[in-house]
Design a protein around this nucleic acid. Structure first.
Lengths: 232, 232
DNA sequence: TCGCAAGAGTTACGAGCCATAACGCAAACA
DNA sequence: TGTTTGCGTTATGGCTCGTAACTCTTGCGA
C-alpha cells in the first residue's frame, strides 16, 4: 500500500538524484558534495542521510538509473524501426546510445568512466539487471542479423576460441563467440566515438560535422560486422 | 646553469608526481589529496605548495607528462617497425596506445576521462605540444598509407565536406578531410576498446582473449580505412 | 672561509566537507 | 485527539585544503 509518506519520500529521493546530476553537469565533474546538494535543495547535509547512507549509495543509485534510462532509450530506438532490417536497427541503436551519452556527459562518465571518487562498485557491474538489459539491446542487431540469415563478421576462429568462456555469462550468453566478437567490435567503435565526443576530445568537432562523421562510422561498423546497408 | 638547488628541486617534483600517480593507482580513482601525497613522502601538506600552487597545477603536470609518455611510446612503436608497411605501423601504434592505457588506467583516465575534480584545462587541450605530438603519431599511418599509394577509406565526400573546417588546426592540419575522417574512425574504434578495457567494462575479458580480440579489432580497423594486411 | 640570502619544510590557523549523534517537531495514522 | 513514526535540524569530531608566519638548513657568492 502506497502511503502518503512513501510518496513524498520517493519524491524527495528523485529530487536528490536530480539535483546531484544537475550539480555534476554544472560543474562538469563526477565529484559531488552532500553539502552542495543539500544547499541546492534548501536543506542541510545531514538530512540527506535519511535517504542515502552516504555518497557511495547515491552514486550507485545514479548508475542504476542511468542504465535504466539507457535501456529505455535503446528499447525505444529498436521499437521505432519498422521492418526487419538489422542494419536499420543497428543504426537506430547507435544513434540512441550516442544521444544518451551526449545528453549528459557526466552521467555517462559516472557509468563508463573510472569509478567515481571513493566509490567502489560493490555489486560487480555485470550483476545489475538494468545493465544486462541495456547490453541486451546492444547485442540485438547482431542476433537479428543472424536470424535474418545475414553474415556476421567473417570468421576469425582463432579469436573466437580464445574467449569462448565469456559467452556463458548473461549479457553475452545468447551469442556464439563469433557473434560476441562482432558485437564487441561494434560496441568498442561506437563507444570510442561517443567517449571522445562526450568528453570533448574530438578536436572541437560538433554539430553537423560530428553527426556526419558518426553516421559514417556507423556505416563502417555495420559493414565490418557483415551488415549491408539496404539499397536506399 | 644547473645549480644543485635546481637538481634537488626537480627530483622532488618528480617524486611528487610519481607519488601522486602511485596513490591514484592504488586507490583506483583520479581523486588525489595533498595530505596523502605528503604523508607518503614523509612531508606535511603545506610543503607541497612550494612545488605546485594547488591540485590543478599538479593535475596539469600529470596530464602533460602523460602525453609526453604517450608520444614516446608511439614514437618507439613507429621506429620499431622495419620497412614501409603502413599496416604494420598502424598495428604497432595501436598496440602501443593500448599498452600505454592499460599500464596505468588512472593516468589514462586523467587524460581522456572527464576533467578531474575541480580541474579545468586552462590551456585548451589541443594547445599542448605534447598532445599534438602524440596525435601526430596517431595520424602517421594514415599519412603513410597515402604516401605509399594505398587507398584510404573509400570516399564519403558528403561527410568530408561537412568537417573540412577541422583540418586547419594542428593535429589534423596535414590531413585532407577524407584522411582525417579515416584517422578519426580508426582512433575512435581503438580508443573505445581501450576505454572499455582500461575501465573494466569488457565483461571481465582479460589476458590472451582480450589480446586476441584487440588484434582482430586492429585488423578490422585497418581494413575499413583501406589498409591491407600484408600476406604474411 | 665565512656570512647571508634564498628556499625548504615546519607548525598554526580558518574555512569547508563528511558523517554521526542527539534533539525537536510535524505529519500521518488509529 | 493522542501517539508514533520519521523528517530535518543543530551540535560535534575528524578530515581536507590552502594561507600565513615561522625556523632551519643549504649552498651561493664575496
Amino acid at each position: 500500500m502506497t502511503t502518503r509518506r512513501a510518496i513524498t519520500r520517493a519524491a524527495t529521493v528523485e529530487e536528490i538524484k536530480r539535483t546531484a546530476l544537475t550539480l555534476m553537469r554544472e560543474q562538469g565533474s563526477t565529484d559531488l558534495r552532500f553539502a552542495d546538494i543539500a544547499r541546492a535543495m534548501s536543506m542541510t547535509a545531514p538530512g540527506l542521510y535519511r535517504y542515502f547512507s552516504g555518497r557511495d549509495e547515491l552514486v550507485a543509485a545514479l548508475v542504476e538509473d542511468a542504465f535504466v534510462e539507457l535501456g529505455d532509450a535503446l528499447e525505444l530506438a529498436v521499437e521505432s524501426v519498422d521492418g526487419e532490417s538489422a542494419y536499420e536497427r543497428l543504426a537506430a541503436l547507435c544513434q540512441a546510445y550516442r544521444a544518451w551519452a551526449t545528453a549528459d556527459p557526466t552521467r555517462f562518465a559516472v557509468v563508463f568512466g573510472l569509478p567515481v571518487a571513493g566509490y567502489v562498485a560493490k555489486d560487480e557491474r555485470g550483476k545489475s539487471e538494468a545493465a544486462e538489459r541495456a547490453f541486451g539491446y546492444l547485442a540485438s542487431p547482431v542476433l537479428g542479423a543472424v536470424a535474418a540469415g545475414e553474415p556476421v563478421l567473417p570468421g576469425q576462429p582463432e579469436v573466437a576460441a580464445a574467449f569462448a568462456a565469456v559467452c556463458d555469462k548473461p549479457p553475452l550468453d545468447r551469442l556464439t563467440p563469433p557473434q560476441a566478437q562482432a558485437m564487441l567490435h561494434a560496441w568498442a567503435s561506437l563507444h570510442g566515438f561517443v567517449c571522445l565526443e562526450a568528453f570533448g576530445h574530438l578536436f572541437g568537432l560538433a554539430g553537423p560535422p560530428a553527426d556526419a562523421l558518426f553516421a559514417s562510422l556507423v556505416r563502417a561498423v555495420a559493414g565490418y560486422i557483415g551488415l549491408r546497408e539496404p539499397a536506399a
